[in-house]
């Protein structure tokens, strides 16, 4: 057993002075294992949506809180939660899933203002920010702040109200979490009838956000990829130490080069942001 582990991870006369895990055939097996693991996650998410707590870490309240924090930092007044705008955001997200699109204007030409007006919000100014595939609210707001057009919307002092919808669904067969942020200002307060009917929609929107396991498939995928990189970097480091220590001469690729390549990939895996803003 110990011998097998040694030959798997360290150069030894029995593995032709190269850790078995670094052999091309072992790399092919690792590729197979990686694909298998990813398939299990994808199939689980596909068969039982929510079992991994998809989008569970995006709370609309926190998105509003972070938005207001950014506005305060910029010296702009904070936004008030508005149930009509919230319903508009929810209607927009539902429309995107039903009609299979990801855009401000639907393929049939429906503009965001249609949903705002439809919710009963009589706007003087209105705006919309969209995001998808983020795993937490901080990254969503950060991404909006990093984009000049979204930032302008988010910090616009003409807006007084805000509504947020975070909804799970499928677009083009891929499970997606959409975040719709609606801004607005109105000259007259919303009528009571609209406010009461929106209480239901708010509850529905938040029901989907209750975490079931606290695990996000996105974070799980990142951890799965990183685990393989860590394993390879560990084996390469051991190999490098043994080659230097015992002055092993062999025909093989350069361990230091492999380490540089995988170190870059590790950084890329950490910095990659999975979400998109629109």
């Amino acid at each position: 057993m110990a011998h097998s582990i040694i030959t798997l991870f360290a150069p030894h006369p029995h593995n032709n002075h190269k850790a078995k895990i670094l052999w091309p055939r072992s790399i092919v097996i690792l590729i197979g294992l990686f694909i298998m693991g990813r398939s299990i996650v994808d199939i689980t998410v596909g068969l039982k949506p929510g079992v991994l707590g998809y989008a569970s870490q995006i709370s609309p309240d926190i998105v509003i809180e972070l938005t207001n924090k950014e506005r305060l930092n910029a010296g702009v007044s904070t936004l008030k939660y508005n149930s009509a705008l919230n319903q508009a955001a929810l209607a927009k997200a539902t429309d995107m899933f039903e009609n299979n699109y990801w855009a401000h204007v639907s393929p049939t030409g429906t503009e965001p203002w249609y949903f705002v007006t439809g919710s009963g919000y009589k706007y003087l100014h209105a705006g919309e920010n969209l995001a998808r595939d983020f795993s937490n609210p901080t990254d969503v707001v950060k991404a909006w702040m990093a984009s000049p057009t979204h930032r302008k919307n988010l910090l616009d002092d003409r807006y007084h109200d805000i509504g947020i919808a975070v909804v799970d669904g499928y677009i083009n067969g891929v499970e997606t979490t959409l975040v719709v942020q609606m801004f607005g200002s109105t000259q007259q307060p919303s009528v009571a009838r609209i406010a009461s009917s929106n209480v239901v929609s708010t509850v529905l929107a938040e029901e989907k956000l209750i975490p079931e396991s606290g695990l996000s498939p996105m974070d799980l995928s990142r951890a799965w990829s990183l685990a393989f990189v860590v394993l390879i970097v560990f084996a390469l480091s051991l190999d490098w130490i043994f080659v230097l220590r015992y002055n092993i001469i062999r025909i093989s690729g350069k361990t230091w080069a492999h380490l540089t390549y995988f170190a870059a990939l590790a950084i890329i895996l950490i910095i990659i942001r999975q979400g998109i803003v629109l």
Partner: peptide
Amino acid sequence: AFSLLGSILVIGLL
């Protein structure tokens, strides 16, 4: 083999 594994690990995340 290393570059194939590396590409799959990152593209799999994307």
